[in-house]
């Protein structure tokens, strides 16, 4: 499969937030305004690509070689926790402006299931290294697209008369359902 097909598939037809349900907790919680959503999306994409790159090597060079593939969950989550920490330190030291913009989101990312899920799907589908990187990039961009669109929709919701019990998470999840329906319209163009 070509790299472009993978990118397109993860962005639209198999959007990780709306068809794989990955990273839904922050998707609901951090989508209050567009700016924050964008910051979170960038941080997720950034960490996703880095962890995918590291996890690919951990899996293929260490786990497969010593026949301990069942340790993948443990090693992936440790890699993710460690990478988030390192990224935070590096960004704070060398890119202070970037740190102001996305620093607050970095610690939250360790428990963002999109990051772990993406590494697992990458291994499951047996992608080569470059394909894995593109998959991670597309996944992060797709997630960003979904959360920014959601934030935009929720900004309009202020003017809508939502039933009291449905406010907050309830209506957000139903909107996500409708968005998911819309994204299913892309199905069949390419498949991942």
């Amino acid at each position: 499969m070509t790299l472009f097909a993978i990118l397109f598939a993860t962005l639209f037809t198999n959007n990780i937030a709306l068809t794989y349900f990955l990273g839904i907790c922050p998707f609901i919680a951090v989508s209050r305004d567009i700016k924050t959503a964008w910051g979170m999306g960038c941080a997720v994409t950034f960490v996703m690509v880095i962890t995918a790159a590291v996890n690919w090597h951990v899996y293929h060079l260490l786990l497969v070689r010593f026949h301990v593939e069942y340790l993948q969950y443990l090693s992936f989550i440790i890699v993710i926790a460690a990478m988030v920490q390192i990224v935070e330190i590096v960004v704070e030291r060398f890119f202070p402006i970037l740190h102001i913009n996305m620093g607050v989101f970095l610690p939250l990312i360790t428990v963002n299931c999109a990051i772990l899920g993406l590494s697992l799907f990458m291994v499951l589908r047996d992608y080569a290294f470059v394909h894995g990187l593109v998959f991670a990039l597309g996944g992060g961009m797709g997630w960003t697209l979904a959360i920014v669109a959601m934030a935009g929709l929720r900004a309009r919701l202020i003017f809508a008369d939502v039933p009291e019990a449905l406010e907050g998470p309830g209506i957000t999840i139903i909107i996500a359902g409708i968005m998911s329906l819309a994204f299913m319209g892309f199905a069949g163009i390419v498949s991942a």
Binding site: L18, F21, A165, L166, I173, I174, M184
Partner: peptide, 18 residues
């Protein structure tokens, strides 16, 4: 399919909170 999951969960939360 995926949209159904969101819709059912949304209605579920709605019911709970009502």
């Amino acid at each position: 399919m995926p949209p159904g999951a969101f819709l059912v969960l949304g209605v579920f939360i709605w019911t709970l909170r009502s």
